[in-house]
Design a protein around this nucleic acid. Structure first.
Ligand code: MN
Ligand code: MN
Ligand code: ZN
Ligand code: ZN
Lengths: 140, 140
DNA sequence: ACATACTTTAGAATAATTATAAACTAGTTA
DNA sequence: TAACTAGTTTATAATTATTCTAAAGTATGT
């Protein structure tokens, strides 16, 4: 049952180092999420549907939620919000910015935006991070 | 039944000019939302609970949702998202920025943040607005 | 191989929101 | 002012995203 090639090794280590047993489901999900060049922004439903589409034995909804939460806790995913009441996840865990274009999300590297003026944190507080959303619309 | 003083006039006009009949419920909700000095950030549940607490005849959940949506469509409220799957509304309809401090939201006037560098919009697109979230944490 | 803690899963439960459709009301008109 | 009608409110059902539960299955250490 356990097919294991060297490609999976990375994902297995990633999971193990987070205290997660590398079950088949978790390895498959990790491969799907992290085995790509570009950042991936997704909802759990989207992830579930696109992965299960091509599988005979479906992974359960609960496992998708569990795994995404575990990867988020382990620091491999970041959560963010659009303005519909659904959680989105981001495979780019560095602090960065976004274009929002009608539900489509595009990364902006942190160094592409710099500030001329920023307010101080209220007393007793400090700034954890600063993230920018640039909302787009069609020309004309 | 219809108590109407000059204070309500403003709200009635606001509603009328948006094509909304100024029913008692809508006037009460508008007063509650807009009759204050500071920006108000809220969820529909929060609004409903705080308003209904002090009323003998409760306003229904559906009316809170309907009215908030109507006010949003009319441009009197803006919607935004924190990272739980709930919609928040903002009585400050101008483009502006926020501090997020453990679920607490604080306005930052637009002119308190200026940019040194900003990316261009992808081709075919233009920038609709730029909004910044500054996440806070406690000192030390 | 055995034990055991961890994991997966179907299904129930919950929370936020939207839809439905009957009763009610504001603004208009006769 | 009575009647009319379109718009509104409401209780309740339905939907969507998510979390919980507990039983069955599996990974890892011995
Ligand atoms: Mn929701
Ligand atoms: Mn939800
Ligand atoms: Zn991103
Ligand atoms: Zn605000």
């Amino acid at each position: 049952m356990h097919k294991m090639n060297s490609k999976n090794k990375t994902f297995i280590d990633k999971l193990r180092s987070s205290g997660l047993r590398p079950t088949n489901q978790r390895v498959e999900i990790s491969k799907f999420l992290f085995n790509r060049k570009k950042t991936f922004h997704f909802t759990v439903e989207e992830l579930k549907n696109s992965m299960n589409l091509k599988r005979s034995k479906k992974i359960s909804t609960a496992t998708f939620y569990n795994t995404v939460h575990a990867l988020k806790s382990a620091g491999y995913l970041k959560e963010f919000s659009l303005e519909n009441n659904t959680s989105y996840y981001d495979t780019n865990i560095k602090s960065h910015h976004h274009f929002f274009d009608n539900g489509k999300v595009i990364d902006i590297k942190s160094d592409k935006i710099t500030f001329h003026k920023l307010p101080d944190a209220p007393k007793g507080k400090k700034i954890k991070n600063v993230e920018v959303v640039i909302r787009l619309e069609n020309n004309n």
